[in-house]
Design a binder for these strands. Structure first.
Length: 562
DNA sequence: TCGTAGATACCGCGACAAAT
DNA sequence: ATTTGTCGCGGTATCTACGA
């Protein structure tokens, strides 16, 4: 038997290095070679630790050399697929180099010839003339992965309908995989139900150990040496606690009971990210009048969905919940027509924001973003999971120290923690009390004794808010405050919105103020934006809500205004 | 007719191994 | 030890289908 012969050979030579003169049946082992020149003579030397598997259609040699990147890509397709051909290439690029999509197209055709995958040409958005090549794994391909040890024996093929909604969900997944690949801090692993995928290029611990050819007509049995994907339950459990994990909400009773089925759920260290891909057809509150006709009767409205997130947040109080509404834009279909869909985003934020400001559970955050922002969004959120309150304080201190250092600024700023706020005789609104910190400023050289803790001595208050791009509650709060500003209630209060990066700040859909409306324009004098990545580079800039930089002298004016 | 994306044919390069 | 044919592979050019 071929299988036993290979096993024997691998036992004898576990490193998989064979000299070219050895004649093995069907050229079982093959090592890549380095070419060297030695006195004009061509020399070939065998390079250790480079491995590949060749799949042959017949013994005359036609076939496909499988290397690590192909296995990883095919395994991800098996566990999380289907993907479009382009998306699959993006996954492949995490592991290997590939110059053009044409070459990749050829590869997919080859895998299709081997009957490892099947291709479906789908017409989406016929009016735009868009065609997509959906790639799905076949039973045969799944068997190949199982036999070579790249996926767990229990793994099932994920069947999903094809459509722009599916493309959107997969695109979010591709983005998340890239976020893991690009950020060392995330540990370089992506965990599914049964499998731990090494994603990072920095992770060199997981490597296949042997090289051999795999014949379709004479299948190779499971080989212990390359079963590096098969993990024990304990290993999987520990990985789920530490790395970004894909959660199957359909199989979890908590979700089933509520009737909540997010399109995808990522878990990262006690944070659940529920992804809802929104194709723009669903209305916020009212069901469409033609619902019965077009079969939308069962479709829940977005309002109902958000209320279900309230329920799940209360049901799982030990987790932080992030409901992420991802709006499809044309970037799914072609990179040429990027569109922000800001109007739809604003409408959803308005609607959801009203719900949140009333009675949202504290462990629920709702965000609305466009698909093209998904990668940056998950990058900042995953990284912020690793941050602590200390990080927030660090940012506040950076802002305060800068202002206190300025000789033009005649006040002392102090951070007041939530616990101490009630001791201060400051006029704080219930909403402000919800913030963990408040910045109050006093005239310089004033000694803060007990009797001086009075409103009359506080020059003004700054409510600092750590904002993440897309965050609906912040958006609602700003709207809420802006109404109060209009009523002149908060004379001495300003908002400081601290973003992780300038890109986050620029891309966030905040509030559009109608021009020439003086009352509305009050918000310009109340809100200050601060992108922290710039500050870390000693670029101490504040911005107005119109995204324009505020100079040092303007800042003084800004703070001084009532 | 146009633009897009996948499929296909073909070419040259390098690796390999059989033939000499 | 050298020559020669075969194959994988990436790249290019050109084909197709398709809807606007």
């Amino acid at each position: 038997m071929l299988t036993s012969k290979i096993k024997m050979l691998m036992k004898e030579n576990p490193e998989g290095i064979f000299s070219r003169t050895e004649r093995l049946p069907f050229s079982i082992l093959r090592a890549k070679k380095n070419k060297k020149t030695n006195g004009g003579q061509k020399m070939t030397t065998l390079k250790k630790q480079e491995f590949e598997i060749k799949v042959l259609q017949n013994r005359n040699g036609k076939g496909f050399y499988f290397t690590d990147p192909y296995f990883y890509t095919l395994a991800l397709l098996g566990v999380d697929g289907p993907f479009t051909q382009q998306q699959l290439l993006d996954i492949y690029k995490i592991y290997g180099d590939m110059a053009t999509d044409k070459s990749w197209s050829k590869k997919v055709v080859k895998m299709s010839d081997l009957k490892f995958v099947s291709q479906k040409n789908i017409n989406i958005r016929k009016r735009d003339g868009m065609q997509f090549n959906f790639v799905e794994i076949t039973e045969n391909g799944m068997d190949f992965l199982k036999e070579t040890g790249f996926v767990n024996k229990a793994a099932k093929i994920r069947n999903n309908s094809t459509g722009d909604h599916t493309i959107g969900i997969r695109q979010v997944l591709v983005d998340v995989l890239n976020v893991i690949a690009e950020n060392k801090e995330l540990g370089g692993k992506y965990v599914t139900q049964n499998t731990i995928f090494p994603i990072s290029k920095y992770d060199t611990t997981e490597k296949p150990l042997n090289v051999y050819r795999f014949y379709q007509d004479e299948k190779l049995g499971v080989n212990d040496n390359i079963r590096f994907f098969n993990k024990t339950k304990e290993e999987i459990v520990s990985a789920k606690a530490n790395f970004v994990t894909s959660l199957n909400s359909y199989a979890t009773s908590n979700f089933k009971d509520i009737g909540l089925f997010p399109d995808w759920v990522f878990q990262f260290k006690k944070n659940l990210f529920h992804v809802e891909v929104d194709s723009g057809k669903q209305s916020f509150e009212k069901k469409s009048e033609t619902a019965d006709v077009v079969g939308e009767a069962k479709q829940t409205t977005i309002k109902q969905k958000v209320e279900k997130y309230f329920e799940i947040a209360e049901k799982l109080p030990n987790h932080k919940h992030h409901a992420v509404f991802v709006l499809l834009d044309d970037s799914v279909t072609t990179k040429k027509y990027f569109g922000n869909r800001t109007t739809r985003i604003r409408n959803l934020k308005d609607g959801i924001g009203e719900l949140l400001i009333k009675d949202a559970p504290a462990n629920l955050k709702v965000s609305v973003i466009s698909l093209e922002r998904a990668k940056d969004f998950f990058s900042t959120y995953f990284l912020s999971v690793l941050e602590t309150e200390k990080e927030d304080l660090k940012r506040l201190n950076a802002a305060i120290n800068f202002m206190n250092r300025s000789s033009m600024y005649p006040y002392d700023m102090k951070i007041i923690k939530k616990d101490n706020m009630k001791d201060w005789d400051v006029e704080v609104n219930k909403d402000i009390m919800k913030t963990p910190f408040l910045i109050s400023s006093f005239y310089k050289n004033l000694k803060l004794k007990e009797e001086q803790k009075k409103l009359s001595l506080v020059h003004h208050n700054i409510v600092p808010i750590m904002v993440k791009e897309g965050d609906v509650l912040t958006y609602a709060k700003i709207n809420h405050y802006s109404k109060m500003f209009r009523e002149q209630v908060f004379k001495k209060t300003k908002l400081l919105l601290i973003y992780d990066t300038k890109k986050n700040m620029e891309q966030d859909v905040l509030h559009t103020v109608p021009k020439r409306n003086k009352l509305e324009n009050l918000i310009y004098q109340k809100v200050l934006l601060m992108p922290f990545d710039e500050w870390e580079k000693s670029n101490h800039n504040f911005y107005g809500i119109d995204q324009k930089a505020i100079s040092a002298s303007d800042l003084l004016d800004f703070l001084d205004k009532e």
